[in-house]
Design a protein around this nucleic acid. Sequence first.
DNA 1: GTCGGACACATACTCCGAGTATGTTCCTGA
DNA 2: TCAGGAACATACTCGGAGTATGTGTCCGAC
Lengths: 205, 205
Amino acid sequence: MPQVKSRRGEYTEATRRALLDAAATLFTERGFARTSLDDVAAVARVTKGAIYHHFASKPGLFEVLFDELELTENGAARAAFEAEADPTVGALAALDQFLRACSEPVYGALVFREAPLALGWDAWRRCEEKYSYALLSDMLEALAAAGRIPPGGGEALPSIAFGMLGAAGQLLARTPAEDCERVRAECRAPFVALLAGLAASVPQD
Amino acid sequence: MPQVKSRRGEYTEATRRALLDAAATLFTERGFARTSLDDVAAVARVTKGAIYHHFASKPGLFEVLFDELELTENGAARAAFEAEADPTVGALAALDQFLRACSEPVYGALVFREAPLALGWDAWRRCEEKYSYALLSDMLEALAAAGRIPPGGGEALPSIAFGMLGAAGQLLARTPAEDCERVRAECRAPFVALLAGLAASVPQD
DNA sequence: GTCGGACACATACTCCGAGTATGTTCCTGA
DNA sequence: TCAGGAACATACTCGGAGTATGTGTCCGAC
């Protein structure tokens, strides 16, 4: 059980949080490329030195933010999947959870719009292999094991399905709040259709 | 009928081509962000002044390259689509043409991997609205008109389908040549399944 | 109680690359 | 033949990421 942190520790944690919050706000509003670290430091009422004390680099700062977001949001999606006994039902529940998360202003914008620009495709992919991509792979495996989709198929299906998630996330991230529910429903359809089409192509007996 | 170009005109066109070729090579190999304009100029055996004489900016140079590539490759895909009377057959023919183009080393890497990083999502989308995204929209419209997929559906389906194309393009762009044919076949499956699933959900009469 | 040291920053700097301003050469047309 | 513009080269500015170093403060050891 962790001891109560010292006064000092509380303060340093506070500036770390202030930096992360400032970065989250500015990266979502102006985008990663168009916000300087001096801007982030100014909003957090510190200087650039504080940033490089707490984080390795500008992409490093982004990655911490990324991990925080995925830890909670992707965790919720995984929980939604694992709560269902049927993998198809579970996958659709996780999809709904994911689409709702992307409707919230920060998650979709940072994780699916800014992350590839900030980290580059490869690093983004490596980061996602702990979260959304891993969950997607697990779900596809479970679906294949249950005979709901054809087995095998290589890396093309997970990659392309992940591209679908990214496109849906970005679409929702730029959708005004009053249209989110309708667009979420529209986004659901292609996934349902893909699952149905794959189910129809499962080899018999 | 255009007159034969002057000696001078030929030379300037030659440096323009050398710059575009150098940029295509370097952007493909090192990526847009990691190649400086001095590098491009050096490979073309000129200086940065020549670049800013012929092009507006670094993204501007990339966009010219982008247009050249899409003009030929997307034109071929559109031709493949329009050559078929049946929209489903045509769409799959265009898909095959697209997947072959992405197997070639430059097209997929520049248009689907580097372009979002170089231009940003919005500008990339605007550029693609003349080419791949336009073709995709036209194909979906034709499919809907023929009753092969449900009508309406908003912007979600084209956006998500475009995300699928991007993911497939990127996957093929990083696939070694000897595996390209197999991966292309694997990439085809999700699109076929999506079309089948959408066809099954068309409202009856 | 105090003193050394490490932590948590601030300040001041370097460095690289995009973009700009200006110079220079050569061709072209009047 | 000469004025002007095209096609570059050269030399600069400027912003932002990253680094090196300074400074105050707190904490534990003696």
